[in-house]
Write a protein that binds this DNA or RNA. Structure first.
Lengths: 336, 336
DNA sequence: GTGAAAGCGCTAACAG
DNA sequence: CTGTTAGCGCTTTCAC
């Protein structure tokens, strides 16, 4: 492999000049710049990243930590992250927590070993104890997506979660549903808490109340949602509509319907937070609350890269994005 | 950040001893090992990866290059890779080619800058010119998945592609279909060529011939498959069944049916190579040729890590895995 | 602009 | 086992 020394020799300049040209860290004449760049091209020189990292204490790599890359919602986040980071000259490590907090911490440790320049984190918990642990382990700029965490100063890029829950329930109430089941996530995660709060708000604004007995937690997991749905639908007075708080749980619910040979919306209306790219080929075509996930990801990364490059401290703000109701066949008026 | 020097001081041993203990690169007494390990734990020491990489010339990172991480087939590959590599003490860079050869080469360059220890590559082309370019850029152990490439010595982990095409067409022929449309990939990629060969073989073994006029290329892309399907189904004598050569193209086909208000299998039977985790909630439930993708990925990584750690040259073998027909509702007997 | 030199944290080699 | 040393490729500083 060619080194910076080889470039210097070939271009007939000093090593420090080559470095200055590459990093634009010191002025150089046009003639010198041209000579250096030609030499770089001729011998196919590429800076040795590990050497740069060792010397500068910072790699041009950012870490993206998501719950599960096989969830299409997060694979989109990963794809956008790759594109935006590459354009800015950064590489990306993508890792999955599997909704497991210990694993999340382990990944953060690995990221730290790699001297990542920054982190995009979709965290598994929102409580202060977790926040304290994060602060002890994260020593680089970071941006939270999705859930927020108490006691950390990072910016948060998130859906208006309350409104998302509210939009979904409003739609069901508008269609006349009153016995509404909710397949929820996990206590202690802000996305769970706030989406559920939106559900309650939507009931309250009509002078109604959510039947808490019809709220079944499923840990944001497909398998648990499958069971939760079955349990809800096997009750003596089953709900006429079911809402889920996330995409994989919608899949679990839909699978349950198939297994129980029920049809939506005939037997039950369903709606979930998070939309599907493949909604058109699903049965039923699911009514959903969509997030502007591409835009959110772009903003998250722009925010992170800005903090990395300027050294600015995080603003600590929560940036809320608007959820949007996407009406599809899976919700029908309740039978009177 | 604590360094190896701090550990040595705290444990009261030499730096070289700490290194020896960490890497098991030289014998050490139990007592010394214990002291060192305690010191490491106490000060929370972690080796500085960039320093190790710079010194050893090799990072403990492998690169995984896939067409598109938002394709569930490849997100599974990524997930398995992460798990297996982490267990072996490696990290993973996952990158998307988007089926673009120039981008593939660019990614390989980036990987090289990072001194990755090895590569898992799902390549965009199979021809010798591409092979030569790869050989010029890849200077580490590598394993190919999916497509193979002429003129490269790497091991290849792949489906028995011919058989996959054969199984699909046999199933359609068994159901009485004769006018069978094929939505294919891209000339010059082995997965395309071999799956198509399997199609022809299946016709031939019944004394029939594939109508080449019904083969429409779609570049393994959903959008192009959408158009291809529409075009096939709008013909004067449309096929009674359509097969696709990959999962995204099956999605494109199914979307086309929705857009044209056609129903499968009533209006047309469909089958595709690659199975869906979410088949149960799709409409129609797609008949598919499944790959043992988890097992294939595990083997690919085991092969790669073995070559990395032993320095063994690749065997250059193709390891073929058995495709499996998964019968679902989307294929019905042809109407007589 | 040059050229020399220090040092990031680690590994490996060597003499004791 | 210790203690020392060189050096991986780079950035940065400093005197010129």
């Amino acid at each position: 492999m060619a080194t910076i020394k080889d470039v210097a020799k070939r271009a007939g300049v000093a090593i420090s000049t080559v470095s200055a040209v590459i990093n634009r860290s010191a002025p150089a004449s046009q003639a010198v710049i041209a000579r250096v760049e030609r030499a770089i091209a001729e011998i196919g020189y590429m800076p040795h990243r590990a050497a740069q990292t060792l010397r500068s204490g910072q790699s041009r790599v950012i870490g993206l930590i998501v719950p599960d890359i096989t969830n299409p919602h997060f694979s989109t986040v990963a794809r956008v992250t790759e594109r935006v980071c590459m354009a800015a000259g950064y590489m990306t490590f993508v890792y999955n927590t599997g909704e497991d907090t210990d694993h999340e911490m382990q990944i953060i440790k690995m990221m730290r070993m790699q001297s990542v320049a920054g982190l995009i984190l979709i965290s598994t918990r929102s409580d202060a104890a977790h926040g304290a642990r994060l602060m002890a382990e994260i020593n680089v700029p970071a941006v939270l997506m999705g859930s927020h965490v108490q006691g950390v100063p990072f910016d948060v890029i998130t859906l208006d979660e309350v409104r998302a829950g509210q939009l979904a329930i409003r739609h069901l109430l508008d269609l006349g549903h009153r016995r509404i089941g909710v397949i929820s996530g996990r206590t202690g995660v802000s996305t769970h808490e706030e989406r559920l709060e939106g559900v309650r708000v939507a009931f309250a604004e009509r002078g109604l109340r959510l039947d808490e007995d019809l709220v079944v937690p499923a840990n944001f997991a497909e398998g648990e949602a499958f069971d939760a749905a079955r349990q809800l639908l096997n009750r003596r007075a089953p709900p006429t509509a079911i809402m889920t708080l996330s995409i994989l749980m919608t899949v679990g619910l839909m699978r349950s319907l198939v297994a129980m040979q029920l049809t939506s919306p005939r037997d039950v209306s369903i709606i979930g937070i998070d939309d599907f790219d493949w909604a058109a080929i699903m049965n039923p075509q699911p009514c959903a609350i969509a997030q502007p996930i591409v835009e959110m990801t772009e903003v998250a990364i722009a925010t992170l890269l800005d903090q990395i490059e300027t050294g600015k401290p995080p603003s600590g703000r929560r940036l809320l994005f608007e959820p949007k109701l996407v009406v599809r066949a899976s919700c029908a008026p309740v039978l009177v």
